[in-house]
Amino acid sequence: MWKKIEAQIFHGLMVLSVISLGVILFLIIFSIVYRGLPHLTWELVSQTPQGGFYIGRDGGLLNAIIGSLYLSAGAVILALMLSLPLAIAMNIHYRKNKKLVNSIRFVLDLLWGMPAIVYGAFGFTLMIFFGIKASLLAGIITIGLFILPILTRSMDEVMKNVPITLLEAAFSMGSTKAEVSFRVLIRQTLPGIVTAVLLGFGRGIGDVAAVLFTTGFSDNIPTSLTHQTATLPLAVFFQLGSPIEQVQNRAFATALLLTIIILLVSLASRYFGNRFKKSIIK
C-alpha cells in the first residue's frame, strides 16, 4: 500500500520536473529564436561592424565571432596543457597518495564552483600586477584559468573510473608510468577527454563575466595576442543594454548565434566521443 503511494509520488514528481524542464527549455529557445531569427542575417555573421548605433546597425559581428573562437580555442589549449598532465598525475603517479589526490579534487571542486566574475576580477588583478593591457592574451589566460578545473575534474573523473585491472595489465608487462599514461590511459579515456575539452570550450565561449575586464572590445578581428578583442557574450551584453529596439533585436540574433555554436560543440562532442569508443575496455 505505502509502496504504491510512494511510487506514485515519485512518478508524479518526475513527470512534473520533466515537464517544467521541457517548458523552460522551450521558452528560452523560443524567445531567442522568435526575436533573434529574423535578424540573424548573412551580414551579421560575415562582416565586422560598420557603424550606426555602435554595434547595432550596419555590418555584422564577425569580429566577435572570430574573437570568441580565438579566445575559447586559446583558453582550451592553455587549460589542456595544464589539466591533462595534472589529471594523469592524480591517477597514475600519485594514485597511492590518496590524501593528496583527494585534497586536489576538493580544491578543484571549489574552483569549479566559483563564479566566473571572480576569475574576471582575478584576471584583472593579474593584468595590473604584470602590467598587461586588456587583450586577447589576458582573456585567454582568464578563461583558461576559469575552465581549468572543469577540464581537470572531468578528465579525472573518467580516469578514476578506468578499471584497475586494465592498469594492472599494462603495468604487469613492465610498462613505465609514462607508457601506461600515454599509450593506455589516454587511449582508454579519449572519449572522456574529448568531452571534457568541448565542455570547457562551451563554458569558455559562453561566459561574459570572465572577459568583462580582460579582453577589452574592438571592431576589428584580432591579429595578435596583444590586441583587444570583441566576444559574442560581451556583444550581447552591450546590445541588450541599448535603449533602441533595433539594437536589442540584434542582441537576440547574437544570442541565437552563440546558442547555435554551443549546440554544434555539444553535437561534435557526442560524435567524437562515440567515434573513439570502439576499442574502449568496459
Binding site: E168, A169, S172
Partner: peptide, 8 residues
C-alpha cells in the same frame, strides 16, 4: 590474470 584484460 583471472579474467583476460586486453588493452584498449
Amino acid at each position: 590474470s583471472q579474467r583476460p584484460s586486453p588493452l584498449p
